[in-house]
Amino acid sequence: MAKILALDTSTDACSVALSIDGEIQEDFRIIPRQHTRQLLPMVDEMLTAAGLKVTQLDAIAFGRGPGSFAGIRIATGAAQGLAFAAELPVIPVSTLAAIALNAAREYNVDRIISTLDARMNELYSCAYQMRDGLPVALVNETVSAPGSIILPDGERWFAAGKGWVYLDNMSAEVQQAVGTPVLDIYPSAGVMCELALEAFDRGEGISAELAQPVYLRDTISWKKISEQKKKGQ
């Protein structure tokens, strides 16, 4: 089985995981604003303990977002750098899919709405159905206002992740369709390793320079000169 190193820095959590022969070790820490200092020492420690060099791995996986812009760029940069230098393929993994898998494991649920707080009164979200032990996305990942969240259908859903902090602002249908949300479910490198192993077997590794963050929120926050003038009038 493939040897895969996974990194995630998309939230306040910073995690590194290593899969060798299907066995996964994980170093998971909640360390707001300390990711840049600790990420590579964590990688180095884990590889050293396993007696491996980066070049002996088969692929690098990373949490490609959505999440904190600065955060997902740290994991992207580190993954790009490691993979480029060691000539390894990269496997970008969705942070929302990682939350779904963590929720399924911890709470034994199989229909999950994964979310992250996108700030500015919005959330990132996606609906997942567990199939053969893995989360399958039923819709596209989106960033949206709480009020515009629509669930795929009316059955019960498990509400996972920090985006549910906006529950009170969601529609009555959504509030009825979910139980009490569990906010403290994070994306983590351990489950990303599992998702990456599957993707690796399907041949989904890409070259380092193609490994890019998925922000979901694009240019809306910045005004072009033409728009700035309109605003000033």
Binding site: T36, L39, F84, A85
Partner: peptide, 11 residues
């Protein structure tokens, strides 16, 4: 640049 460069050097 720092995260990519530092990681390359590590590898």
């Amino acid at each position: 640049g720092a995260s990519t460069g530092r990681a390359m050097a590590l590898a």
